[in-house]
Design a protein around this nucleic acid. Structure first.
Length: 866
RNA sequence: GCCCCAGUGGCGAAAUGGUAGACGCGGCAGACUCAAAAUCUGCUUUCCGCGAGGGAGUGCUGGUUCGAGUCCGGCCUGGGGCACCA
């Protein structure tokens, strides 16, 4: 049998596609469009198995849609700014720009080797000045609209690297790279007003019906919209300077206002600071609160602590009722108003606090079935658990008898009528801090003028390009310490001014790249006409780790740009698919050192499964299956796999092994299985002789049966791809190949050869999305017209996929006891007769009385008998 | 603590409420070979039985149904997200 040689065929077909320019995306108003996009890679320099999986998944969709008559856009680019390049620069003294572009060149070659159906003419990197210059242009449009602002904010500061760190880059209070204890520092920071869009970002999630539920829920939680009441508690004893009106609190439970027993403010609330100015005790308490760590474990175990300020406020519904104002350590300044009213009976934290300081606990929500007096007493005297469930309001004057939700509205109405507050929506989402004190990023295109303050550059002074001679050898912002770059003139007065030296967060770079792909050469940031054709992205594919970050930022920027009139769509990604990771077993030496799979030999399987280190012969400990990572040394290099088995086998394995949303475990035997399939397919095509003239399928039972099987296969594979069940689709292909093998070409009748030819022509096209090179080679071997890549997707005749005679299992009392054959669509009475006439079934029913016969048309028969 | 997802052979996994375990991996047996590799064929949930055949079986438990891996209730385990968010 001739062995398939991917080293020869794979480059050959890639060249053929490139020469035919097969994957150029063209705006064709006569065709439906389809935009497939995988999250673009960071150019680390090395392709890993996660990339292979991600881009193979997208390529299946792109090739499939193309064959189905869509005009497909499937582009590729590089998310190329960011820290790794600066770190490489610092560690190895290389230039980040050169390092990045070298990496891009290497990864481009590797990606091209994958045989992806990508329109490479649209490629760009976010560090191309042509790209980030356009980014500066739209950034300034948002600036003009007030969506960009600058304010002082508390940030994580790494004193060794001398830069701000994102929250994710702080691990256990230390900088992830330097290991230095991170300081809180107040800095002037640039923000994008994402909170202006918090409502829309929440509401529009409902439209995203082709997004995983999980991601929508995560975004909803992250934005954290809550509806409640913002209200002021008037002073009983006061007023305090600057707080003449009283203390403003936010609550989601206005229905429990009659259960109030104190007002609480955050330790860093301005009022608390004012109190501290007059009281050493208060000062000491606030200091103590600051010491408490911010780590999760510390928060979980932290005791509720408070300080009575001595100030008192009046209850909004009863001016004679005075309540104390406490400073409490569990109140957060950056949520709501930084102040609350405490209702211990119906909030666990408030209850803990009240018990500690002997504050009253007044039940105002009566749980269903509870006795009012008994419950009131129980809550007041002994309860340690707050009641947060549904019920009817009591002990609450005008609110008595209302259900919780009705009481909320009634309380809000009353507060509003009194002029003490207003119904309000509060979000957990904070504005997006986008400034980074980093040289390798997109410069923020403004200048600081001593006369005019922050001045946006006019359009004709863009792009603000990075200087070529940045010095990255030491920590800190290379842009800020560049000797000349920042010195410029003010566009308003012409006087001397300094450029902003902060650069934009790389998540800004990736928040609009999908729109730039519609026309990467446009003179404007966005070619609206091109976007009107291509956007939204029909299928976006990437990892779940971006569920809130990138995917939320991109949605926000899309909405902001739409409001700017630059885009027509308000959501960038109509469909989202989050693929699983590629994992591998881990291996360790007795010494604890990780050992890479290439140096591991597995001895025996099953319970006696053991691993041995090839280079030293020592036994190894087999560890958990984990995401492939350098630190655990459990990676497998794609290029080595390509070299041995070819690209198609590697693609086939990652697509066939597990459903795409689930993690998949890489295994050598698995890719060997895929490689076997590749060879078996090739053998089948290679052994197919020319079909004799005049050979016809019709009239030959065997050939007709094969034709039926072929049509069923087309139906199944088409449906599997449509529903992202690639592993199932590939299983059908394996099955069909087994069927072909069972009636080989050798010795076949002319009719059978004709049926085989039909089957093979369909098969070559069906495997195209998964193993594109093999598909072309097979297609060409049996005389297919042109290339598979230009061939239409095969169709099926529904009449042929429905069997004329159905085999129906027959159950007796739910247990399978035999089967019968019945014409398709046979009426229940007809089927029942066949069943009862069947001797085997009759034997089963001996001694039993038939109570009922259930016939499900074309599916199953169940006889209930006793 | 709250929310979401998952639990099926030795392993990865299939199954519009209708024959559980397709397909692949691994394993066993056989063919080819001097031999091995590669390849091909068959078997491979488990228990009883020489066999025909029969019993049990989709984390546990209860329910709905003629019929439940699938639907509903309670629980267990694993994974993920959020979290002093008022």
């Amino acid at each position: 049998m001739a062995r398939y040689n991917p080293k020869e065929t794979e480059p050959k077909w890639r060249k053929a596609w490139a020469e035919a320019d097969s994957f150029r995306a063209v705006i064709d108003p006569n065709k439906p469009k389809y935009y497939v996009l995988e999250m673009f890679p960071y150019p680390s320099g090395r392709l890993h198995m996660g990339h292979v999986r991600n881009y193979s998944l997208g390529d299946v969709i792109a090739r499939f849609k193309r064959a189905r008559g869509f005009s497909v856009l499937h582009p590729m680019g590089w998310d190329a700014f960011g820290l790794p390049a600066e770190n490489a620069a610092m560690e190895r003294g290389v230039d980040p720009k050169g390092w990045t572009y070298d990496n891009i060149a290497r990864m481009r070659d590797e990606l091209k080797q994958l045989g992806l159906s990508i329109d490479w003419s649209r490629e760009f990197a976010t560090c191309d000045v042509e790209y980030y210059g356009q980014q500066q242009a739209w950034f300034l449009e948002l600036f003009k609209r007030g969506l960009v602002y600058r304010r002082e904010a508390t940030v994580n500061w790494d004193p060794v690297d001398q830069t701000v760190l994102a929250n994710e880059q702080v691990v256990d209070g230390r900088g992830w790279r330097s290991g230095a204890v991170v300081e809180k520092r107040k800095l002037n920071q640039w923000f994008l007003r994402i909170t202006d869009y918090a409502d829309q970002l929440t509401d529009d999630l409902a439209e995203l019906d082709r997004w995983p539920e999980k991601v929508r829920v995560m975004q909803e939680n992250w934005i954290g919209r809550s509806k409640g009441l913002r209200m002021t508690w008037r002073w009983a004893q006061g007023p305090e300077t600057g707080f003449e009106d009283g203390v403003e609190v936010y609550t989601t439970r206005p229905d429990t206002l009659y259960g109030a027993s104190f007002v609480g403010i955050a330790p860093d609330h301005p009022l608390a600071e004012q109190v501290a100015a007059k009281s050493a005790e208060a000062r000491a308490f606030i200091e103590e609160c600051k010491k408490g760590g911010a780590s999760q474990a510390e928060i979980d175990t932290a005791e509720k602590k408070g300080f009575d300020t001595g100030l008192t406020v009046k209850h909004p519904f009863d001016p004679s009722w005075e309540l104390p104002v406490w400073i409490a350590n569990f109140i957060l300044m950056d949520y709501g108003t930084g102040a609350i009213f405490g209702c211990p009976a119906h909030d666990q934290r408030d209850l803990d606090f009240a018990r500690k300081y002997g504050l009253p606990v007044r039940a105002v929500v009566l749980p269903p079935g509870e006795d009012a007096a008994a419950f009131t007493a129980h809550m007041a005297d002994e309860a340690t658990e707050a009641y947060t469930g549904p019920g009817v309001i009591f002990n609450s004057h005008f609110l008595d008898g209302l259900e919780v939700e009705a009481a909320k509205s009634a309380a809000i109405d009353r507060i509003e009528a009194q002029g003490d507050g207003q119904g309000a929506t509060v979000f957990r989402l904070r504005d997006w801090g986008v400034a980074r004190q980093r040289g390798w990023g997109c410069p923020i295109p403004v200048v600081h003028c001593p006369q005019h303050g922050v001045v946006a550059l006019p359009r004709d002074q863009l792009p603000v390009a990075l200087p070529a001679d940045l010095e990255f050898g030491k920590p800190g912002n290379a842009l800020a310490r560049h000797p000349t770059w920042k010195h410029t003139t003010c566009p308003q007065c012409g006087g001397p001014a300094e450029r902003e030296t902060d650069t934009l967060d790389t998540f800004v770079d990736s928040s609009w790249y999908f729109a730039r792909f519609a026309n990467p050469d446009a003179a404007e940031p966005i070619d609206k006409a091109a976007c009107d054709y291509w956007l939204p992205v029909d299928q976006y594919i990437g990892g779940i780790e971006h569920a809130v970050l990138h995917l939320l930022y991109a949605r926000f920027v899309t909405k902001a740009l739409a409001d700017e009139g630059m885009l027509s769509v308000r959501e960038p990604f109509a469909g989202l698919f989050t693929q699983g990771m590629v994992t591998h077993e881990t291996y360790r030496r007795q010494s604890g050192e990780w050992v890479e799979p290439g140096d591991v030999e597995l001895v025996a399987e099953g319970a006696t499964r053991r691993a041995r280190m090839v280079s030293t012969g020592e036994p190894l400990v087999i560890g958990d299956v984990e995401k492939m990572s350098k630190s655990k040394r459990n990676t497998v290099a794609p290029e080595e796999i390509f070299d041995v088995y070819g690209v198609d086998a590697a693609r086939l394995f990652v697509l066939s092994d597990s459903p795409p949303e689930r993690d998949t475990q890489w295994s050598t035997s698995g890719v060997q299985g895929a490689w076997r399939f590749v060879n078996r397919v090739w053998d089948e095509f290679d052994s197919q002789p020319a079909v004799p003239a005049g050979a016809a399928v019709a009239g030959d039972a065997g050939a007709e049966a094969l034709r039926v099987a072929t049509h069923k296969l087309v139906k199944q594979v088409t449906e599997a791809i449509d529903t992202f069940r690639f592993n199932s689709g590939i299983a059908r292909l394996y099955e069909f190949l087994n069927l072909l093998k069972s009636s080989p070409a050798a010795g076949a009748t002319p009719a059978m050869l004709a049926a085989r030819q039909e089957a093979l022509l369909a098969f070559a096209r069906l495997i195209g999305p998964f193993v594109p090179h093999l598909a072309e080679e097979c297609w060409s071997r049996i005389g297919g017209q042109g290339m598979v890549v230009d061939a239409e997707w095969p169709t099926f005749d529904p009449a042929l996929t429905e069997d004329a005679v159905k085999v129906l299992p027959v159950q007796v009392n739910g247990k399978r006891r035999g089967e019968i054959s019945a014409p398709a669509g046979a009426e229940p009475s007809e089927v029942e007769k066949i069943v009862l006439d069947d001797p085997e079934i009759a034997r089963r029913l001996e001694g039993l009385t038939i109570r009922k016969v259930i016939v499900v048309k074309d599916r199953i028969v169940n006889i209930v008998a006793a």
